[in-house]
Design a protein around this nucleic acid. Sequence first.
DNA 1: AAATATGTTGCACGCGTGTGCAAAAGTCGT
DNA 2: ACGACTTTTGCACACGCGTGCAACATATTT
Lengths: 337, 337
Amino acid sequence: MTTQPKTANITADDVAIAAGVSRWTVNRAFKKDASISPKTRDKVMKIAEEMGYIPDLRAASLASDRSNLVALLVDDFSNPHKLVMLERLTTAMRSRGWDTLLVNTLDANDTAPALMHASRRRVDASILIGLQFDDDVLETVQKAHNIKKLIIFARRSEQENTISICVDDRQATLEIANYVADKGYKKPFYVAGPRTTSAHLSRKETFAEYWSNTFGTDVQSLAVGAYDSILATNAVQTRFANVPSDGLPDILVCENDAIAMGAIDAVRHHLGLRVPEDIAVFGFDDVPQGASPNYRLSTYRQPMTDMANYLVDVLESNDTTNMDRQFIGTLIIRESA
Amino acid sequence: MTTQPKTANITADDVAIAAGVSRWTVNRAFKKDASISPKTRDKVMKIAEEMGYIPDLRAASLASDRSNLVALLVDDFSNPHKLVMLERLTTAMRSRGWDTLLVNTLDANDTAPALMHASRRRVDASILIGLQFDDDVLETVQKAHNIKKLIIFARRSEQENTISICVDDRQATLEIANYVADKGYKKPFYVAGPRTTSAHLSRKETFAEYWSNTFGTDVQSLAVGAYDSILATNAVQTRFANVPSDGLPDILVCENDAIAMGAIDAVRHHLGLRVPEDIAVFGFDDVPQGASPNYRLSTYRQPMTDMANYLVDVLESNDTTNMDRQFIGTLIIRESA
DNA sequence: AAATATGTTGCACGCGTGTGCAAAAGTCGT
DNA sequence: ACGACTTTTGCACACGCGTGCAACATATTT
């Protein structure tokens, strides 16, 4: 970059003078539903364009106490589903005038600092997307800082003063369990993700409950340390490496696709078995990679676009009491189960 | 969310009064290298903490003309490598005090509007990460708006007034070509991504040039419409579906891993051949998924962390002429080639 | 103890815009 | 052409903090 032509930043005042109107009229021209005549707006916009004027949102935000900025805290970049979420959220938000401050939560203890940091930019809301935020942390954070809106996305939270937008986990899990039972699987095994101290019933527990109620048998399970395929592969491999074939499950029901794909890899490449003939696998999320002919993963799709749009509704509403909402997704059946 | 306790926003003035110092001293306490005695700083910080004071970066930015905000424009969320980049970039930036404004470039024509939109927040720099930004667009954008720093990340650009931070494509491709030749492959085929109007030699051209110079034979190729595995699978399948086996290549050299993984799927599941015995596959980027036992993808790793750190160096430097830089990565050899 | 160096604190002014209201200009019917 | 509307425009004040310098306080030297 060479030096700019020393153009002392152009303000609305400059444009106003050039256009022969007041500064306020200039800013009105840029404001969507402002009361201004089309004629003057055109004139102002044209001159503004020529002069290269761009309204300063810092000043606007300072004066209006609304930033139109939303912090998006992400704590786990290894799950490809995050990319889908990011895409859907940013699309929905930007198309409706909301900007995204992407905050990488470095580790589990960084949630509070990260949230506080975002507050320095006076974000209108903070969105938590990811699962390491357990309810304890939220409580602490919520008390300490005056967060305007705290939205938990794609995860259930019972926390007070928090808006949770997610899929109905219970319903989803029951649909999956139903499918698994209908297809005649007898020995399901649940592969869960990292334990969170969330208050509500986890997918694993819902599944186990259903199975126990229906067949009177317990469902065994294991927990992977993170939503990461490689870790899942290792976990599944070590868990079943020395298990005789009649002790193996006939289906691995996984908490999400990242784990499910890792599980498939383990079944095929470490246990030397076939999917789904020997062991079937079921996922959750419907990540694009799951559609690959390698995986053909049966899974459950969350209505991400609807959820993202609803999130913007929440951003735009003033009274956000009771705006928690659970969405219903759809079973995606491919060949893995 | 219930209504907050109507706490009219706490400012430095409030803290100053409570602490018996001037407002400026309060802000100094929050400023890293400010000239302030440890004693007063502690006192101020303690009171600020109690009162829940959080400095307002909008006002700070307005007054200082430095926002410490960087726009990150992303135009393609289907390539899992983006997730890696996002993670590395945000980690490097946040750890050194830079915030990220994530802007989803809705389509190819949205680059200019997106950049302009970011300017409204007076970002200190804009980073382009993704390949749909061709040089024509950049030129237009550059002229129209007073962008402070325009950084092209992970892609070469010859554009004036632009800082390009990327891997040395030529060197990388030559390393790959060398490896392919050394291993005795005779009939390589190049699977490229979408064509960009970039001025410099593409990876495909470099590879073809090497092959032609070394063996005197041309390298055939095909271009996939996007860096997307599914599209790549389809493209490879249709290209080779009716080709007799002696007309098939012995290795597919791919422009990146997303395409390479799609190519592997096509070879195995549509052409019914083995990787690498019948057709080998080579990638680029080293995405985590490539390490899966399903793919065991041989590829080229870009030094993302170094590149991200260097990017922050650029953010922090005043004179950014001649800061273009090309990094050297490393060949990652697994079983796919 | 005075003189000098060093560290610490206070302040006038400016950064660029929104809010709510009042004044001015335009519209319409008769 | 007049009154009663409606639309459009202008404005005082506020938003919260940084800059650069001057004043003040404390530590160091002679």
